[in-house]
Computed example of a mutant assay.
Amino acid sequence: MAKLLLGLLLALAILGTTSAGGCVQDAEDMKRECKQFELFPANPKLPPSAACCAVWKRADVPCLCKYVNKEVEKVWCMEKVVYVANYCKRPFQPGYKCGSYTVPLSM
């Protein structure tokens, strides 16, 4: 699991510091502050910490979602990611695609 997360961060780092620069820091911050609330299993869903919500409020979510793939989705529970985003008052729009995951029309 750690290899997959490291791979995601490495891929972002390789892209450079121009458009992906914020993504690298956001990915590191998300891993540090939110992983305990967003990893499998899907239940229980726990309210995230204030530090995790602070990351969500400033993260470049569209940039992060570009790098979500099937391997990432094996580690990060996208259902929990959507839950945390909603809890932190930065919800995904229904139908939004983050990697190959599509946010359900009703949660």
Rank of each mutant, 00 (worst) to 15 (best):
C88V: 13
K66I: 11
C65E: 09
Y67C: 04
A59Q: 01
Q93D: 10
V61E: 15
K66Y: 09
E73T: 01
F92V: 08
G95E: 02
V75E: 02
K66R: 14
S106E: 13
T102I: 05
E71H: 14
G99C: 15
V81L: 02
E71R: 08
C63W: 00
N86P: 01
P91Q: 11
P62N: 08
V72Y: 12
K89N: 14
V61G: 08
V75S: 03
Y67F: 15
M107A: 09
M78C: 08
K97W: 02
V68G: 07
C88Y: 07
K89S: 07
G95L: 00
A85G: 02
C65M: 12
P94V: 06
S100T: 11
Y96W: 08
P91M: 10
K74L: 14
K66M: 14
V81E: 01
V75R: 03
K70M: 13
P91D: 12
Y96N: 08
V68R: 11
V82D: 14
C88S: 10
P104S: 06
Y101V: 03
V84G: 12
L64K: 04
E71N: 14
K66P: 02
G99L: 11
V82H: 14
Y101L: 03
Y96T: 15
P94C: 07
G95P: 02
L64P: 01
V82S: 13
K97P: 01
P62H: 09
R90P: 00
V68H: 15
N86C: 05
K80W: 11
E73K: 03
L64M: 15
R90F: 05
M78T: 08
K70Y: 12
W76K: 08
P62T: 10
V84I: 13
C77S: 10
M107L: 14
A85V: 00
C65I: 06
C63F: 00
M78N: 05
C98R: 04
Y101K: 04
V84T: 14
K70R: 15
C65R: 05
S106R: 11
R58M: 05
D60G: 04
M107S: 12
L105Y: 01
V75W: 03
R90C: 06
V61Y: 13
T102P: 00
A59W: 00
N86T: 07
G95T: 01
V72I: 15
Y96L: 12
E73D: 05
C88F: 10
L105G: 01
L64H: 05
V61M: 15
N69P: 07
C77G: 12
L105V: 01
G99M: 11
V68D: 14
E79S: 09
P94T: 10
L64Y: 04
V84E: 13
G99Y: 14
W76N: 07
P62I: 09
C63M: 11
K74E: 13
N86L: 05
L64R: 06
P104E: 05
N86Q: 09
L105H: 02
K66H: 15
E71I: 09
G99A: 10
V81R: 02
E73P: 03
M78R: 06
E79P: 06
K97M: 01
P62Q: 10
C63Q: 00
Y96I: 06
S100K: 06
L105P: 02
V72H: 06
M78S: 07
V81Y: 00
R90M: 06
T102A: 04
L64Q: 12
S106N: 10
C77L: 09
F92C: 09
M107Q: 10
C65F: 04
A85F: 00
C65T: 06
V61A: 14
Y87F: 15
V82Q: 11
K80T: 13
